[in-house]
Simulated scan of single mutants.
Amino acid sequence: MKIRPLEKKDLSYIYTQENSRKIMALWFEEPYTSFDELQTLYDKHVLDQTERRFVVEEDSQFIGVVELMEIDSLHRNTEIQIIIHSKYQGHGYAQMAMSAGIDYAFNVLNMHKVYLYVDADNSTAIHIYKKLGFVEEGKLRKHFFAEGDYHDSLIMGIFKEEISN
């Protein structure tokens, strides 16, 4: 498994994932409405220094996406997000991809902290994040609206010195 920068050729895979209501609900977002919108967003954000998007792949097969968002060079922190395609879930890709994204944040971008938001009811994801060393920092009550309801969200964070090897 490896991660590599997202390229325009990957947009068809991204469109399939991000046009799924179930998948985007995990990110507390609504699905994209059109491929044209996705292309416009890609063109707008490709040079944005506050974001890094990576494709997760195995033997050139698209597995998912890991993203570093809200990269703050002053306070040296960033949010991390991940989506693994449903047919590859349960094979350890999420943990490996998150680890690679965290490594990039700390060792390439020189971040001090990596944080994430996760649905308080997503026990599978929370288990993975805790295995990686993330610590629950708080609970945001009814903070995100997805799939017709408000959801509590946990905010979790990790510092470089807390990485479990």
Rank of each mutant, 00 (worst) to 15 (best):
87 K>D: 12
128 I>Q: 02
108 V>I: 12
112 H>C: 09
159 F>K: 11
124 T>V: 10
139 K>Y: 00
124 T>Q: 15
89 Q>D: 02
138 G>R: 12
130 K>S: 06
91 H>I: 00
131 K>D: 01
136 E>L: 12
78 T>H: 02
144 F>Y: 10
96 M>C: 08
119 D>T: 10
71 I>E: 02
121 D>T: 15
111 M>F: 00
111 M>T: 00
119 D>L: 14
107 N>W: 02
137 E>K: 14
66 V>Y: 01
153 S>C: 13
99 S>C: 04
89 Q>H: 06
120 A>Y: 00
158 I>W: 00
98 M>W: 02
69 M>A: 07
87 K>E: 08
88 Y>N: 05
113 K>H: 06
140 L>C: 02
126 I>A: 05
123 S>C: 04
95 Q>A: 14
66 V>K: 09
147 E>N: 14
121 D>K: 15
147 E>D: 12
106 F>Q: 02
101 G>V: 06
82 I>K: 00
73 S>N: 11
84 I>Y: 00
109 L>M: 10
152 D>F: 10
134 F>P: 00
153 S>Y: 11
128 I>H: 04
139 K>C: 12
90 G>H: 10
137 E>V: 04
97 A>M: 07
81 Q>R: 12
128 I>S: 05
125 A>N: 07
139 K>R: 13
95 Q>T: 12
85 H>A: 15
77 N>M: 05
76 R>S: 01
74 L>H: 13
95 Q>M: 10
126 I>Y: 04
73 S>I: 03
144 F>T: 09
86 S>D: 13
92 G>I: 10
150 Y>P: 07
90 G>E: 11
151 H>A: 11
